[in-house]
Design a protein around this nucleic acid. Structure first.
Lengths: 213, 213
DNA sequence: GCAGAAGTTGAGGAATCCCCTCCACTTAGT
DNA sequence: ACTAAGTGGAGGGGATTCCTCAACTTCTGC
């Protein structure tokens, strides 16, 4: 059953407003905000998207897939190092510019996470392997470091978004220089496990709903 | 006018409980928590420390001064590089182990900030200068990077505190390797200004009180 | 036009959270 | 034993946010 024409138009307004509002304030933004931004009442938002989660999914599914495409492109870069650092820089820029995207990437539930992982983890592994083979990436860094580095740098990006949007880039460059293979690098110790990564990711995003402690 | 003996004992219990509770959960911990932990009623806490701020100040003033001492010791290290990295590692360890200390360091009001800055900024400058002179620190890193690096790394430390307390060390080492002077380092771009640093610091700690937006 | 289905609205219900107050009650100390 | 000091903890007050609902408006097919 197709939507009435005005309802369809409102649906699109809501999606577009949600994208804007979430981009600026992350999932902490309220649906009242989204409604106001879209020029409709809250009730309309809830009629179209019964829960906040469903609205979020409708807004960010595509954007998350763009990240997979980005990883694929990184593998096709002229050199492994360019591919690796290009992926870090571009995905950091995307996450910095769209807090909602970051929150979406970090707060996926188990099901979404599994699906996404199956797509992107093999790509990250290949990106890292290729750089190891090239000899440009330090041997003790692995693909497990990707999500943690991203979480760390983009968190800084959020904190400085209002005063100086590009500040995070400086510290990403610092980390990138730390990732280069060097004869006299220090040692990094144990890499994070998948469990660690999941736990850190969860900690990086505030719960959608008042926490049940 | 001296406190009654039981009141004195309770005051100490409160301070010690506050330290524990803030160390574990940061300033987000409630005074009800502190009271419960101390085995006293909330009323007792408020009788001794009229506001949350005053309790925090009573608990953390000394610990903040320890950081100044640490910076002084860093200047006396055998090499500039050892001093610099030792200071980063130790202060990161302190902040990682005591979330309250981190919150205190990041959320000082203007008055405390000014006082503290006057003490520690000259030390950080000297630590950095010494390392520049030694030739071990990359030329485009400055003392302004200290607080940002600390904020970034200790935030990760908080996020992984429950699952893997030492995880942050790996990424601190990565950053430290990125700080080394190298012929082929990338360039870092603009250093943060004092204003940027203050803004990022504020963003790193949730407001003590419900925000007035 | 018009009937009725579909859609809209926004105040407010319900749940949480947390700082802090208040006052009936207890205890230390002379 | 008396009094001043101290204590406890329910609850006031203010904030936040998700979501509902009943009265109202607009679209659409006939």
């Amino acid at each position: 059953m197709a939507l009435r024409r005005d309802a369809q138009r409102n649906r699109e307004r809501i999606l577009s407003a949600a994208h804007e509002v979430f981009a600026a304030r992350g999932f902490a933004a309220t649906l009242d905000d989204v409604a106001h931004h879209a020029g409709v009442g809250v009730g309309t938002v809830y009629r179209r998207f019964p829960t906040k989660e469903e609205l979020i999914e409708a807004v960010f599914t595509d954007r998350l897939e763009d990240l997979v495409t980005l990883a694929e492109e990184a593998l096709a870069a002229p050199s492994a190092w360019e591919g690796l650092t290009g992926f870090l820089r571009t995905s950091a820029r995307w996450h910095a510019a769209d807090r909602g995207l970051r929150d979406a990437a970090l707060s996926m539930d188990e099901q979404h996470f599994t699906t996404a992982s199956e797509q992107i983890v093999p790509l990250l592994e290949q990106i890292m392997e290729r750089a190891h083979a090239e000899g440009t990436l330090r041997a003790d860094a692995g693909f497990h470091d990707f999500p943690i580095i991203m979480a760390m740098v983009t968190e800084l990006a959020q904190h400085s978004a209002d005063c100086r949007p590009g500040l995070y880039e400086r510290y990403l460059e610092l980390v990138i220089d730390g990732l280069r293979a060097r004869p006299d690098n220090g040692s990094l110790g144990h890499a994070p496990t998948d469990t660690d990564i999941r736990a850190v990711m969860r900690q990086c995003v505030p719960p959608l709903r008042p926490s049940r402690t």
